[in-house]
Computed example of a mutant assay.
Amino acid sequence: MPPNSRKNPRRKTGLSTRTRTRRPITPRPSPQHKKSDAEGERLQKVLAAAGIASRRESEQLILEGRVEVDGQTIVELGTRVDRLRQNISVDGEPLPRPKLAYYAVHKPEGVVCTTKDPSGRPRVTDLLPSGLGRLFSVGRLDMSSEGLILVTNDGALANELTHPRHGVEKTYDVQVTGHVDQTVLSKLRKGIHLAEGFARVVHVRTKSRRKNGTVLEMVLDEGRNREVRRLLARVGHRVQRLTRVAIGPIRLGEMPAGTVRRLTSEEIKKLRAYVRQAEQKPHNNQKRLDRPATRQAVLSWRDRKQQAAAGKHSAKKPNRRGGQR
């Protein structure tokens, strides 16, 4: 059969041989809700926490157009809102705004910071008095550590305290094995390579020495998982006890383990002022993560790049004719 005798069925029906897929059109959020879409909590979660209905029933209320935020009817389940700063109403009835609460907790070892724990382990929120409503921990402190953790229902302040761009400093008393010398302290200040990049402490000093160990004071402005333990493990010292003693201007003081106290109005003002100052302070977190900490590390990093580039060019691939290109 001649090569041109075959008929293209697509041409017969007048269809193009090239199929085009159209992207679904997603409506742009209104200017009124641009900020709430990026921050805050999901609307159905806020409704459920307020006791309006269950999470699934709250989703149905939204889909039925019975929920308004700042006077605008919301029908999208992904909408995020800030209950403390926005007016939310269901069937025309406004949600009562919760009273802001701020607590300092001395978390003991063996207590987790999560709001829900499927394993049934004791939580930080279990240490609080009953009847306070929904509260959550600000940041985290691993189960084997103890010390200060803040608990609140102020989502905006919690976000400012935990966001990397603010660089809120946290102070720890760390008891480690062995005697820590100045060489180790210098390494911690210059920076140490972890799995996700370079990290270094803001401040470190020796508080006391014991027969088989050392107590350090360390200040960090990042919130990476188990960062203190990982940094000290890289310099050959195992952490025996880790206690967070301060978050910004808030100190643990003489609070016994497992106790709770409400922050004073003066402490809350200091905390807000500290966050504003920290936001204006320049931070080079990304630069610290990506670039080596010492000149020797920079040189070896450049050598590795040159070797990798040389190896890439030396590996010749055969072209279609079987030769080298």
Rank of each mutant, 00 (worst) to 15 (best):
M1Q: 08
M1L: 08
P2I: 07
S5F: 11
S5L: 10
R6Y: 14
R6Q: 15
R6W: 13
N8P: 06
P9E: 10
R11E: 07
K12F: 11
T13A: 06
T13H: 04
T13D: 06
S16Q: 11
T19Q: 14
R22W: 10
R22I: 11
P24M: 08
I25N: 13
S30V: 12
Q32S: 11
Q32C: 02
A38T: 13
E39P: 02
E41P: 02
L43H: 01
Q44V: 12
A48K: 14
A50C: 13
G51R: 08
I52L: 06
S54I: 03
S54F: 04
R55L: 06
E64P: 04
G71E: 06
G71L: 02
G71I: 04
L77G: 09
D82T: 07
R83A: 03
L84V: 02
L84N: 14
R85I: 00
R85Q: 13
Q86I: 03
I88K: 03
E93G: 12
E93N: 15
L95Y: 02
L100R: 15
A104G: 14
V105L: 04
V105Q: 05
E109W: 03
C113P: 04
T114R: 03
T115Q: 04
D117M: 12
P118E: 12
S119I: 03
R121M: 06
P122W: 03
R123L: 08
R123I: 07
T125N: 10
D126K: 07
P129F: 06
L135Y: 01
F136K: 09
M143S: 08
M143H: 15
S144Q: 12
S145W: 01
E146C: 11
V151K: 02
V151N: 06
G155L: 00
A156T: 07
R165F: 02
G167F: 05
V168H: 12
Y172C: 14
D173S: 11
V174D: 04
T177G: 09
G178F: 02
H179E: 08
V180P: 03
D181Y: 04
L185H: 04
S186M: 04
H193L: 15
E196S: 13
A199H: 07
R200D: 00
R200V: 01
R200T: 00
H203T: 15
R205D: 13
K207E: 12
K211A: 15
K211T: 15
N212M: 07
N212R: 12
G213N: 08
V215S: 04
M218C: 09
V219G: 10
D221S: 15
D221C: 14
G223T: 14
R226N: 07
L232W: 01
H237G: 10
H237M: 10
V239W: 00
T243L: 15
V245R: 07
G248Y: 01
M255P: 07
G258K: 06
G258R: 09
T259M: 10
E266Y: 03
E266W: 01
I268W: 00
K270S: 11
R276T: 02
R276Q: 05
K281R: 14
N284E: 10
N285H: 14
R288V: 10
A293N: 02
A293L: 01
T294F: 01
L299D: 09
S300K: 15
W301R: 15
W301D: 14
H313L: 07
H313T: 08
K316A: 05
K316R: 15
K317G: 00
P318T: 05
N319P: 02
R321W: 09
R321Q: 12
G322A: 05
G323F: 05
G323D: 05
Q324D: 13
